[in-house]
Design a protein around this nucleic acid. Structure first.
Length: 274
DNA sequence: CTATAAACCTGCTGGC
DNA sequence: TGCCAGCAGGTTTATA
């Protein structure tokens, strides 16, 4: 669920709420939500730490701490970070942090797929080693995208979901980016023209920026730090709009399966062969 | 390199 | 109304 825009939105909210706050206590309720460390050690190392910065890499949220460690959170399918009052409870809370102002930061996750890691700053590089370029950073250019796709013979939709090709796209924004670029999701990457890749580049950035602008896309469970849904669903053009008219040509949107993921596209605007 | 399946989990939806 | 199969935004690992 949380793709780059949803993580970015929450990162921006937390930046205003968490920097300078001290974690008075951490409480792990579902042990497997903590990766690579005993939950007791996780709780101990977090106690008394002050938040110095909030960052994001791909779909990972980073909470930097005053001892040089970073709390890294990947919410996978159903994780949410919610700010709550002192004694408030949220359903499916897996890890709870008590802050020095009395409030709590609750990690909720019905499906238990999400993971929290506590790592030293110099270990971060390893955690992110397999990630491709950050699509909204200045060093991501159409040329970089072209290079990432060069010689690849897979369906373009599958490659957009591959975090080592471009980091941060998920099923929603991959479909949206392809629609914006008018590229059929099953096109082999190696058949894309220079111009099509340029259009795809613009589509990726446009879809992500629109998502961030509207506080992320809530389809199902995504909530922000204030437990509010994202507003981007009404700005989505093809995702989950099977049978509805294409916003560009009114042809009904179709749904197929690509790389085992539901995929939505306009059969008129996104032709299999240009 | 590519493709596919399964695993990790629970909740929701649609069909009967 | 009740039950059950199938599906869900992600990633990793195994197998072919």
């Amino acid at each position: 669920m949380p793709e780059l825009p949803e993580v970015e939105h929450v990162a921006r909210q937390l930046r205003g709420e968490l920097i300078g706050r001290t974690i008075v206590a951490a409480h792990v309720i579902w042990a497997r939500s903590v990766q690579g460390m005993d939950p007791l050690e996780f709780e101990e190392r977090l106690r008394g730490r002050t938040v110095t910065a909030i960052g994001r890499r791909a779909k990972y949220l980073l909470i930097s701490l005053d001892d040089g460690d970073a709390l890294v959170i990947h919410r996978r399918m159903s994780g949410n970070l919610i700010l709550a009052e002192k004694d408030a409870a949220a359903p499916y809370t897996r890890v709870a942090f008590t802050l020095d102002d009395g409030r709590q930061l609750l990690y909720t996750d019905p499906r238990k797929f999400g993971r929290l890691l506590l790592v030293s700053e110099d270990t971060l590089e390893q955690v992110f080693a397999a990630l491709g370029p950050e699509p909204l950073e200045a060093d991501f250019t159409p040329e970089v995208l072209e290079q990432q796709l060069a010689g690849r013979d897979r369906a373009i939709k599958a490659l957009l979901l591959d975090q080592s090709v471009v980091a941060g796209l998920g099923n929603i924004y991959a479909d949206e980016a392809l629609f914006r670029a008018r590229i059929h999701p099953l096109r082999r990457a190696s058949t894309l023209t220079h111009d099509e890749i340029a259009a795809l580049y613009a589509g990726i950035q446009g879809a992500l920026r629109t998502g961030i602008e509207h506080g992320g896309t809530t389809f199902g469970r995504f909530r922000d730090v204030y437990n509010e849904a994202g507003r981007n669903l009404e700005h989505v053009e093809v995702y989950q709009r099977t049978g509805q008219p294409c916003p560009h040509c009114a042809t009904p949107i179709e749904r197929i399966t690509v790389a085992q993921r539901s995929t939505h596209f306009c059969p008129t605007c996104q032709q299999a062969h240009q």
